[in-house]
Computed example of a mutant assay.
Amino acid sequence: MRLIGRWGARLGATAVVAAAGLAVTALPASAAPGVDLAVSVQSGVVAAGSDGKPFVVKVTNVGDADSDGFAFVLDVSGLDLKKVTIELPEGTDKACGKQGGKIACEIVNVLVPNDSAEFPVEVKPVSGRGGLGPAGSFKAMVSNDKDTNKSNDSTTVKVSVAKPGVDIVVWAGDVVAGRDEATGKVERVKPDGSAELSFAVFNFGSVASKGIEFVVQLPEHVQFTAGLEGCTTSSDKRRLTCTLTDFLFEPGDRGIGADVPVKVASNAPESVDLKGSIVGKSLGVAEALGADARRAAPQAPGWLKTRNNADDVDAGDNTDEFVVFVGAVDGGLPVTGPKALAIGGVGAVVFAVGVVLLVAARRRRVVLVTPAE
């Protein structure tokens, strides 16, 4: 498959080694008894001068029984609105109720153990007058009458505005055979069956970066059945490494990604949940040359120079984990090959910021119900 598009800055060697050596196996069998919903948020920092980015609030069922829905509440009353603004994406917000500093949604997703639902919360720095530093906090909460553990039902996210810079964000969807259209419940991939892994990479910062490297690691019993042009696959076909050192990745809400076919081994354990990961990090920041430098080096490609070893303004969202849901033996979901989407004449899958909502709608479906008046 061709993987060409709007690319960001390269992964540092430390991140590559860490991802390559990551032990990715089955999720623990000793889950909490009954339904146990847990809330987590990776992001907490947004770059000054940027258009903002989605802070993904993830609700995961870490129990051993299916959850038949839940209420989701976002309390934003603790934010410093002089520095940042916050809102749910268009469409999602219309299905939720708002009162004061709180946003409440009723979710009818059926979450099997280890499944999750994701809510992209758009946080934007206030341009011109907001300033850097702490910007208050927001709180995300879930509730379900059958939840047996209330200690992980909420999380408070401290928000801050960092100096302008690169902000690489990665996302990966769970690997499933499908999802129920009405409830979003997982349909498992059978041993010897095939499915697709979807992933995406963004630069939500305020500075362009040059070159990118990221690593996708599959769990044991799962292999890639096709590669990506410009990338390498490990001998065991479980690790995909993509390195593009010269591509200029502009900041904004357009990222790159792909749907890559994978296969579950015929001898894989039945009815297990296997965990994989994607890791990415910026390597170089592309800076415009001044007028004198342009005259001195007129042949410089794009009038750019590269500052190596770039710091990412928020490393907390440079890693994402996904789950391969394996079922019992009984056929599988055929996959014809990798998919690509041509945008602007470039052979690639290029996502807008709605990837967290649009792709997640296929992989981690969020079913919203308009609240009663």
Rank of each mutant, 00 (worst) to 15 (best):
A172Q: 09
G252R: 00
L88R: 02
A300K: 08
A300S: 15
A315D: 14
D317V: 08
P120R: 06
A291V: 10
V157G: 03
F202P: 01
A348D: 10
A71I: 03
E122T: 00
V76K: 13
E122V: 10
A293N: 08
Q299M: 10
E270K: 09
G21M: 06
G302R: 13
D36F: 02
A310R: 04
V366Y: 01
V367L: 09
G100K: 05
G130H: 08
E87K: 14
D236G: 01
G78S: 10
F214C: 05
E250D: 08
P261Q: 07
R295C: 00
A15G: 11
T233M: 13
V366N: 04
I107A: 11
A361S: 14
K237Y: 00
T85S: 15
G193Q: 05
G354L: 07
K82N: 14
L79N: 06
G91Y: 11
K190A: 15
L197N: 12
K102Y: 04
C96H: 04
E213D: 10
A26E: 15
S206C: 09
G69T: 14
V17L: 13
P54N: 03
E87R: 15
G290S: 03
G331V: 01
A300T: 13
R2Q: 10
E181D: 15
D147Q: 00
G52M: 11
V207E: 13
L341G: 07
L283Q: 10
A26V: 05
A328E: 14
T243Y: 10
V39L: 03
F214D: 01
K210E: 08
N203G: 08
H221P: 02
I103Y: 07
D147V: 05
